[in-house]
Simulated scan of single mutants.
Amino acid sequence: MRQPARLATAVSRPLRELWWLVGALALIILLARHTPLDHALTGLFYDPAARQFPLRDQPFWAAIMHTGLKYLSVAVWFALLLWWVSLRRRPSRQPLRRAIGFTLPVALLASLTVSSLRALSAHSCPWELNLFGGSADYFRFFDAVPLNPGSGRCAPSGHAASGFVWLAGYVALRGVDRTAALSALAFSLVLGALTGLTQIVRGAHFLSHVLLTAWICFAVAWLCDTVYKMWRRHRAG
């Protein structure tokens, strides 16, 4: 009786999480299409008299918060790689090593997914739109692309992925070490919020672009985790 119950739990949890993912995506689209939040938040950092975002090239936001946080995320990836190698001959730490071994490639996959979707996007950055001093026409998600959409390639937010890719660590650790999983979650959300806010302040992205990045990063990690666990159950069975 124990095995069917365990199998039912293993199947029902991903289904519940899938519904949560669908609901979260619907909320992001609702926010972008039917609320003024994107424009209202971005407008706080726009100077209509100068027709520009004053903090766009300000050293703190452009160098420290933009470039610096990106390199921090890269440094974390390499530090985890070294940690993963150092745990190779420590049998008691193999669950942690497997979690790190999952996190490293999945974080890269999430970043690649965001970059690929961004490259295909027709949505331009706020600083390029005629609403905020540029010349491109604004359009919402799922609207017809206007005649002058600008250069595009701005949704989702690539920079916010520097933080949100570490949601893979939370997904990997939640069945191994609850405290470590919550620490990974907090780190990812804080770094993602900071990198996302940086680009909003600079006029590079709307809030919905940042939230979409968070959703994609978690969805990639969730899908990889679900497929991996299904594969392990198949091998065990």
Rank of each mutant, 00 (worst) to 15 (best):
A5F: 15
A10M: 10
V11K: 09
L15R: 10
L15C: 12
R16L: 15
E17T: 13
L18A: 14
W19V: 15
L21R: 08
V22H: 10
G23V: 11
A24V: 13
A26W: 13
T35K: 03
D38T: 09
L44Q: 12
D47L: 13
A49S: 11
A50R: 14
R51Y: 06
R51I: 05
F53Y: 07
L55R: 09
L55H: 06
D57T: 14
I64T: 14
G68K: 05
L69Y: 06
Y71P: 06
Y71K: 06
S73D: 05
S73H: 02
L80V: 11
L81D: 10
L81S: 12
W83S: 09
W84A: 08
V85I: 15
V85C: 12
V85T: 10
V85W: 14
L87G: 04
R88S: 13
R89I: 02
R89F: 11
R90Y: 05
P91H: 04
P91M: 04
P91K: 06
R93L: 13
R93I: 02
L96W: 12
A99L: 00
T103K: 01
L104M: 01
L109C: 12
L109I: 15
A110L: 06
S111G: 15
V114G: 01
S116R: 08
S116V: 12
R118P: 03
L120Y: 07
A122R: 13
H123C: 01
S124E: 01
C125T: 11
C125V: 07
E128F: 08
F132C: 08
F132M: 02
Y138R: 12
R140L: 09
R140F: 08
F141S: 07
F141L: 15
F142D: 00
D143N: 07
A144W: 00
L147M: 08
G158F: 00
A160I: 05
G163H: 04
V165Q: 12
W166I: 11
Y170V: 11
V171D: 02
L173C: 04
L173S: 02
T179P: 00
S188M: 00
L194P: 10
T198P: 11
Q199A: 02
Q199P: 07
R202A: 01
G203M: 07
H205W: 00
F206L: 02
L207S: 05
L212E: 10
L212G: 15
L212D: 07
F218E: 07
A219M: 03
A219D: 00
V220D: 00
V220Y: 00
A221V: 09
T226Q: 00
Y228P: 01
K229Q: 14
R232M: 04
R235L: 09
G237M: 11
